[in-house]
Structure formats: structure tokens, C-alpha cells
Design a protein around this nucleic acid. Sequence first.
DNA 1: TTAATCGTTTGTGTAGAACAAAGCATTTAT
DNA 2: ATAAATGCTTTGTTCTACACAAACGATTAA
Lengths: 164, 164
Amino acid sequence: MASLPVVNQPPHRCGALLDHLSRRLRTRSETVLTPLGLRPRHLLTLTVLRDHGTSTQQALASTLGIDSTNLVGLLNDLEADNLVERRRSPEDRRRHVVELTDVGAKKLAKAEFALAAVEDEVLTALTSEQREELYSLLQQATATTDLAACAGADDSAGTDGLCR
Amino acid sequence: MASLPVVNQPPHRCGALLDHLSRRLRTRSETVLTPLGLRPRHLLTLTVLRDHGTSTQQALASTLGIDSTNLVGLLNDLEADNLVERRRSPEDRRRHVVELTDVGAKKLAKAEFALAAVEDEVLTALTSEQREELYSLLQQATATTDLAACAGADDSAGTDGLCR
DNA sequence: TTAATCGTTTGTGTAGAACAAAGCATTTAT
DNA sequence: ATAAATGCTTTGTTCTACACAAACGATTAA
């Protein structure tokens, strides 16, 4: 063990910085999102639905990392505005399959457009290329559909198996 | 929907992804941080103090983007554990200058070390180079000490001028 | 038929954080 | 010297986000 003092490992971790940047962005986003009737959570949910595609509520809750109980209310909000749609799964009629509607996709696009200015402000220190790079890294990092399920790995790798 | 006029601008914004990743990391970090007697906020504060250096409470609150009233309690926590030190500014004795102590720096390093595993788990989808890249982008993006003050740009560019 | 599962509803508890108001120490302006 | 403004602190209120638990209907599986 002695031979390797932590040479190749930079001691600094991303967590705090991620928090920091995320916080700056979120705070400012709220004022832009409010007139659209959205909140950060809603935006996040719509984004995940677009990027990861349709999924059951359990899977969605797991991806978002929130309690499925709380997801219900979130989806109620979104469905009330016709941004997402819940349909019963044909395979297992207990399940609800959540899907982004056209309206939802448009709203999401609109929100993202409106957020450009905010992002510009917060990311002033980065060039366009760097912002692209950041986006693609984040995209890739969050592409891991689920963490708990893959690690915990219970039986549930069933019908609509996730994990890559 | 056919040919999109939005040519040079990628429509996707980082905000939601940043939220997403930050959330995943923070949730998992908490369990690691708790035994150290820290919470995400504390870690963030220590990190900012190390990276941006000593600053007054006002400046710190502004950098962190939290209310200065709430910062007081945060600093009380940290000072109680001797992780930071408040000294009166020699220039203006109304001001408190906040500084990371040696103990604080060590604790921070320890926390970061302990968080390596968590980060590994959350960032599985990224290679080491990509993680480095991500870190450096985040670092650069958050280097902007303050946003409101630079934009709002009142008189206050005085004695301990910030903004870069 | 019984048991388990998925989503829903309701309710509880906790923590983060904004905001307001008032006070003390100190500095600046008059 | 006195008055006004500033920086930090304290206290207290309020909101919101969430996790968590319990109980229910619908549905599937044993």
C-alpha cells in the first residue's frame, strides 16, 4: 500500500462545485420558469422524460432520485397541464407508463430557449466550446438511468429492464 | 417540425442536467459527510473559502448565493468546530473576515478523500480524463466570485474589490 | 383464495432557506 | 459631537422540498 501515496489522484472533488453552480443556475432559473408555470423539478422531469424516454413511474422515480410518493404529485401537476400523459401499461395494467406529450416537448423547448439568457449569465466564464463540452459531459454522466437499482440490483430486472 | 431554423444554437440547456447530477451526488454525499459532522452546505462553504480565499461575510454570502442572515449560523457551526475563523477586519472593524483554519483545510481534504468513492459511483459513465475535464470546467465556471455584484455593479468596488 | 405489486392519497416530520425586525459596534457625514 | 449609515448577530416567521409511513383500489401472481 505504501508505494502509492495518492499520486495520480487529484484530491479535489466535483461535488461542491456542482452544488455551487447548480445552485446559482437554479435560483436564477426560477424567475424565468415561473411565468411558464414550471418549477425546476418540472423542468428536470420533462428533461429526463425526453432524454431517457418513456418509463414507468417507479423507474422514473428511481432515475430522478425522488420518492415515488412525491412523484405522483409532480406528475399530477404536469398532467394537469397536459405536458405528460399517463397510460396504463398493456403488459401490466397496474403500471402507469409516463410519456412526454407534444405540448410537453414544446413547452420544454420553450423553457430551454428562455433559459439561454440565464445560462449565459451564469456561465460567462466559459466559452461556447466549453459550454458544449460541459453539456456533453453532463449528458453522458446522467445517462446512467439509475444508480440504486444497478447497484442494489434486486430481482426487478424484469420486463422493462433498465440498467443500460 | 421539418427543417429547424435553430441552426447554430443547441437548444439544450445545462440547468436540468446540472440539477440532476448535483442531486445524485449530494444525496449520496450526505451519508459520507454525516460521520464527519459536515453537511453539504458546510462542505461547499469550506471549498469556496479554500478556492476563493478569505473574504468578508457579505462577500461570502454573495458568492454562495445565500442570505447573509443564514450564513451566520453556518459560520457558527464551522467556527464551533474550529474549521474557520472570524477576525475583525483591521480596515473596518465592523467587518468580519472569514478564513479557513488549518484544521478546516485538513477536514476538507479528508472529506474530499472520503467522497472519492461516492463520486466514482455517480460518475461511472465518465472516464478519468472526462472527470478531470468536468472538474476544471466547473472550477472555471464557478471562479466568477460573484454574479449579482458584478452585474448590479454598484459603488461597492471599494477596498476589498471582488469581481475577478 | 391469498398474497404481492403499482400507483394513489393523506398525513407527519424535518431541513433549507428567504425574509423581517431589532440590537450592538463601528464608521462616515454633518 | 451628534446623527446617520453600515456590518454582523439574534430571533422569529414562513415557505417549500422531501423523505417516510399507513392505508386503499386495481391488478397480477401463487
